[in-house]
Design a protein around this nucleic acid. Structure first.
Length: 208
DNA sequence: ATACAGATTGCCT
DNA sequence: GGCAATCTGTATG
């Protein structure tokens, strides 16, 4: 398949160039496929908002590996989120897949997402996307070129006006480096997640 | 060993 | 818009 070589070439590039190019790509896990509509770039140890900001750990080890792997992490004691590792090996850059629309396997996705009131909500948000696809830590490090989890790039658009416009803005939910406009989404896509500022958890612990 | 913060979500008013 | 749920990584004793 020509798509595999294209994928490797693209993902080895700088994360800020890779991230918007992943819009429209299709992530598939077995019978469920999601078309990506919103992503965020995380630029390795240079990025205070990245899980790799403090170097390599057991959790983020996959980020330091070769591009084209899935980095799946567990957070808030109950949610999983997934990233596409990019940049050359050792750079620890990754693109968080924040939202998408289920384009195949809708019935299965509905079964996994009982809280979703509409199909638009099935993969609207990073943890929802993982839940709809059935992804968890068992899929951390999965090679996206082949296997149970695959990523397929969007077809090249014809020359001229693009059918969809890429928008940029601040990343969601971060307190560190919250100013960097490293979130990218498809303008007008209904599945793009709602923006929420970071929650100040310390106020709930009675110490402030 | 203890404390706290976190790339979120769903339910409450 | 507020806030609980619930586990892991990291800092500190």
């Amino acid at each position: 398949m020509p798509g595999s070589a294209d994928l490797e070439t693209l993902l080895a590039g700088p994360v800020l160039e890779v991230a918007p190019r992943l819009l429209g790509a299709v992530l598939r896990h077995e019978e469920v496929a999601v078309r990506i509509t919103e992503v965020e770039a995380y630029d390795g140890p240079n990025d205070p908002g990245s899980h790799a900001a403090n170097g390599r750990t057991a959790r983020n080890a996959v980020m330091f590996g070769p591009p084209g792997r899935l980095y799946v992490y567990f957070t808030y004691g109950m949610h999983h989120c997934c990233n596409v590792v990019c940049g050359p090996e050792g750079t620890a850059a990754a693109v968080l897949l924040r939202a998408g629309e289920v384009v195949e396997g809708v019935e299965v996705a509905r079964g996994r997402r009982p809280a979703a009131r509409t199909d638009r909500d099935l993969a609207r948000g990073p943890a929802r996307l993982c839940q709809a696809l059935g992804l968890d830590r068992a899929h951390d490090g999965a090679d996206l070129r082949s296997g149970a989890v695959t990523l397929r790039l969007p077809r090249k658009r014809a020359s001229g006006v693009p059918a969809e416009t890429v928008r940029t803005g601040p990343r969601v939910g971060l307190r560190r480096a919250a100013d960097r406009p490293w979130r990218f989404w498809i303008d007008g896509a209904p599945s793009v997640s709602a923006y929420r500022p970071a929650v100040d958890l310390s106020r709930r612990r009675g110490t402030g």
